[in-house]
Design a protein around this nucleic acid. Sequence first.
DNA 1: CGCCTATTTGATCTGATTCAAACAATGTGG
DNA 2: CCACATTGTTTGAATCAGATCAAATAGGCG
Lengths: 271, 271
Amino acid sequence: MPSKLLRKLEGLIPLSEAERRALEGLAAHARTRSFRPREDIVPEGDRPTECSLILDGFACRYKLLADGKRQIMSFQLAGDITDLHAFLLGELDHGIGALTPCKVAMLPHDTLQEVAQEHPRIAQALWRDTLIDGAVFREWMIGIGRRSARGRIAHLLCEVLTRLKAVGLAEELSCELPITQSDLGDALGLSVVHVNRVLQELRGEGLITLRGKLLVVNDWTGLEAAGQFDPSYLFPPTVRRASGAGRDVRHADLRPFAPSLGVGGAAERQP
Amino acid sequence: MPSKLLRKLEGLIPLSEAERRALEGLAAHARTRSFRPREDIVPEGDRPTECSLILDGFACRYKLLADGKRQIMSFQLAGDITDLHAFLLGELDHGIGALTPCKVAMLPHDTLQEVAQEHPRIAQALWRDTLIDGAVFREWMIGIGRRSARGRIAHLLCEVLTRLKAVGLAEELSCELPITQSDLGDALGLSVVHVNRVLQELRGEGLITLRGKLLVVNDWTGLEAAGQFDPSYLFPPTVRRASGAGRDVRHADLRPFAPSLGVGGAAERQP
DNA sequence: CGCCTATTTGATCTGATTCAAACAATGTGG
DNA sequence: CCACATTGTTTGAATCAGATCAAATAGGCG
């Protein structure tokens, strides 16, 4: 079974067999750690020497305000490297917390650097991933700033289901959603009470079924409309339709990649 | 007079004389364009072949919602390269709009790539800059999600003044703020009317003076407290106290920088 | 001046918060 | 296996921050 990370990166850029092996090896040889819900995977302000790759569970990026309020800025799912950011900037300006029990592979910065240097295309894929991360932030911001509670929740459910499907953790219209309503509230800037009421509303309209930790979307079109969800921000244009995902890439697919900070990104366009 | 860009990048990482010259040359030889307020500098979904460096004026990143609402996601000031993002990902997932008359230098992707390849440290500085951009987004999000209107506005005023000071466009406690209240509203997820009332409140409390396009902060401590503003997110730790900014760097300051996507960032720590 | 765009003010309405408490589920130890 | 504790969900009522609607001023500027 291919790792979630591999699966995700292949969606960003076609990989050769050697690159795949390198990625598999990376995760395979890494030390793993387990975290309890509410435990910090990386505390705010830390200067980690390893990157945390989520293998299993739900985590989140968050910041705390002086008055104790928490703002969750994104959910981190299996296959996400949560603190690639600190690999480059040194310090993490926000915390990474486990929302459910989490299994995490610790990838030493050194190892990661070796792999990236030997396989620049992997480095490129990782970088693209961080940029997509930024796009997710922006979309999140719009939600918080301009959408109604109903819209925000609908949009978030769409996003999570879509991302889980991308790593093979969801059926076409259902997935595990093992997070609490108060986590949802902290992510969307809403109170628990209100989250609860809106969820009931969405259930009442027959858009979703949400019982225990299982989310079923009964009316995808309706939910998409309620949240004005457009998944394109999750899939950058270059490989929007990765027709070849899964199969081995042909040599012609492997355009040379300019070294030195990957500034050749602009030359990477698909015709 | 050093360009704003140079000034900003020197705050991120010490630069050698050659690197400075390269940067100056970059902007000096570039074609410039002018934009009227409300005009798009880069429309959403564009695939630009040049990067836009703001030389003068206020611009913003924004997205439009289906119902015509606008969410501004950050202000772009002189010295900011607004679409470095597209240089790497190809397509821009949001628009860049002028808020005031803007003068913009157009830096061809090719030229930028050459400079970055010849001067990897410049590339590194640019990359760090995009990561800081991300940090600004996160801070913005907290504001929108968890702060009161009062807190949001105070925080924003602190941020803008701080950033303008960093490029030499502000006095210690005052700056030009040539944007409309409705722009502020779109940035903070508030209605114009409410922005207006809160501004009056802040004026009434003697925290600020805001007349015409001139912002004066009468009580910085008070404003900082009202917005829970902590500028550290604008200045990454490595060079938080750039004691040597402005002077020429000593050779010892110039640590080697690993090529290939700059994954050597982790090795760049200051002792 | 007259037009257009910003700011300001007033009145009203509502989505969402807060507080409080009941209820359900899950887990823990005796 | 039950009693108890803990954490999450649900419900109700009161309140408020901020939106909306409407209209009056105040600046710029050709």
